[in-house]
Design a protein around this nucleic acid. Structure first.
Lengths: 337, 337
DNA sequence: TCTGGCACTCTGTGTTCCCGAGTGCCAAGT
DNA sequence: ACTTGGCACTCGGGAACACAGAGTGCCAGA
């Protein structure tokens, strides 16, 4: 059905089209790649490829352009992820190592990725639900107010101000804090609800109502922040890649956290690359857009995802290489800090 | 030199051009605005206005377009800031009031502003240097590590992990924390360095080296974060406003925090509007862009700035109204939380 | 000082025309 | 059974051209 040469032709079409951004014809192919056959033969193969939906011609008498299906085949079977150069690796390493806190790690990562791929990069903050509690702090601020601060093992900090209905002495707060910490230390965030449920029993009667207030806010924080924060960079690259359709749509999608979230996709194993090509992705505004994403995490747990978004005619091998590399390095950095 | 009618003509030109995005001619002006004179008269006035550089014709036989200088005159003398409608005010209020923490306030503000003005909105996080210390927390995390958390009166939280060279018992930490807090509570962040300088004297000899480590990190945090964080939204609006030049340049500028910072400009009094028109602004990539910015803050201190960025041919009265209103509301929200 | 009239100057748009790249098909060669 | 060269055909895009319409500047008269 699709012999080796036809596949080679498809690969050549994808590569040429990606680099020139113009429909590629049989003659050009015969010249630039040494396939060892004449243009006429290539034409026959092209006809077959078109028949099966891998390529497509914009109008009669133009060259061929890969379809989404064609890119898919290319990504799955015809290309190899291209590793970064040594220089690039070192650059990444030193650049990321200079970050002082989680915000900065994320910020640097997203910029790095955008620069490396010359596309729009998206990074999701390390997930709350998959991380563990490192510390809980309850800080009095003002009369009947406390601030609840939750610190996770990924360095993420969540804080909330809570209004209390009664005055509470410092030492009672301190006690509550101590109890909370012994209970929750190292506890996976997804286990917090059940762990917390049995906690009031360990407290003196008088503190229970206060504790209830605080705990409910704690739980609320976990739920609300379940939908993760996203950051993106490199939108200027969109202007360069003259988008066939709706640069506007793309920009809109980028500001819709929810859409973006879904685009990064579900987990597929750590550092496993997910590629969504054009119409494969669930958002109509992004017909002409592909997403290359990967999970990252420290140790063996996936904490969150990152990826890039660009025109379907992107250089997949290079992009995939960059995404994978960055995902790994971020994982290392997070594990080490 | 410029009598009343000529000014009226300029105003009419700006208004028409803003709404139609096409060079406006003498006849159209005479029709749409009742200036009480004939097209021929208007032509004479236009010639005078052009003579003095307020308007300009793209080519010999086209209508006129305002120059930056023309917009400037319009903003300064010919227009009034247009207040928001009651419905809009209420919408803002309820939308902002729903925010639970500083991140969310900023996020909502920037989106709101983008939506209201249909332009790109930029919001600067409330400045560290102008706010005061509400609480300092030192939290042990792991063996020889503590986390320093600084909470400001604007609800901003800065945290840093610090590695210590020696083991330090909990109670010594607690003591240090207590001393720090009594010293710094309510202290303006810009005064922290001097206040902190005399602090070691109050501590027992044995704690001084630990304190020094921690304090140096504290100071470092203040300095590093002096360059403020910025957030923007509404880039999709750029695609709609078909930019005369370089959408790319604009996107690039947006990702350059430093540039953006400067664009928001220096303080000009609380809720005082700053308008920068086209070539008035210091960045060449933004020739065709205007910025409308204002400071916001709680009480009478300006904490940070916010604004919008759009094509020079924007609706200044409306935009200015929106920016001013949002700045005020954010100030209120911050003061109240 | 304003106004109507008039000649003039452009740009943008539509039309036509043609070149060339690229195709599909066919018949001949291996 | 493939592959190849040849050939007629198609169609998009650029160049050349004409033209209508909007807008101007200027001038003479009210």
């Amino acid at each position: 059905m699709l012999d080796d040469r036809k596949l080679a032709v498809l690969r050549a079409i994808v590569e040429d089209y990606v680099s020139t951004n113009e429909p590629v014809g049989s003659k050009a192919l015969a010249d630039r790649h040494n396939l060892g056959v004449s243009p006429a033969t290539i034409r026959n193969d092209m006809a077959a490829l078109e028949e099966q939906g891998y390529i497509h011609q914009p109008h009669t008498s133009a060259g061929r352009v890969p379809t989404d299906k064609g890119y898919r085949l290319f990504v799955d079977r015809l290309s190899q992820v291209k590793p970064l150069s040594g220089a690039e690796r070192r650059a990444i390493e030193t650049f990321l190592a200079g970050a002082v806190d989680l915000d900065e790690i994320v910020m640097r990562t997203v910029r790095l990725l955008a620069q490396l791929t010359r596309q729009v990069a998206v990074v999701q903050y390390p997930s709350l639900t998959r991380s563990t509690v490192r510390h809980v702090e309850i800080v009095p601020v003002g009369e009947r107010r406390v601030m609840l601060v939750l610190i996770t093992n990924t360095g993420r900090v969540e804080q909330r101000v809570i209004d209390l209905v009664e005055d509470v002495a410092e030492d009672r707060i301190a006690n509550l804090r101590a109890v909370l910490n012994t209970c929750l230390d190292g506890c996976g965030l997804s286990n917090v609800p059940e762990t917390v449920a049995e906690l009031p029993e360990r407290l003196p009667q008088e503190d229970r109502s206060v504790a209830a207030t605080i705990l409910s806010v704690l739980l609320e924080t976990l739920v609300e922040r379940h939908e993760e924060k996203l950051v993106f960079a490199g939108t200027a690259n969109l202007a360069a890649a003259d988008f066939s359709v709706g640069l506007r749509d793309v920009l809109e999608a980028l500001e819709e956290q929810v859409v973006l979230m879904r685009l990064l996709g579900e987990t597929g194993g750590l550092s496993e690359l997910t590629v969504r090509i054009g119409s494969e992705n669930p958002y109509t505004g992004l017909r002409g857009t592909s997403i290359v994403a990967a999970g990252y995490g420290s140790g063996d747990k996936e904490l969150a995802r990152l990826g890039v978004l660009g025109p379907t005619r992107m250089d997949y091998p290079v992009t995939m290489g960059a995404v994978r590399a960055v995902a790994r390095y971020v994982g290392q950095i997070l594990a080490g800090s």
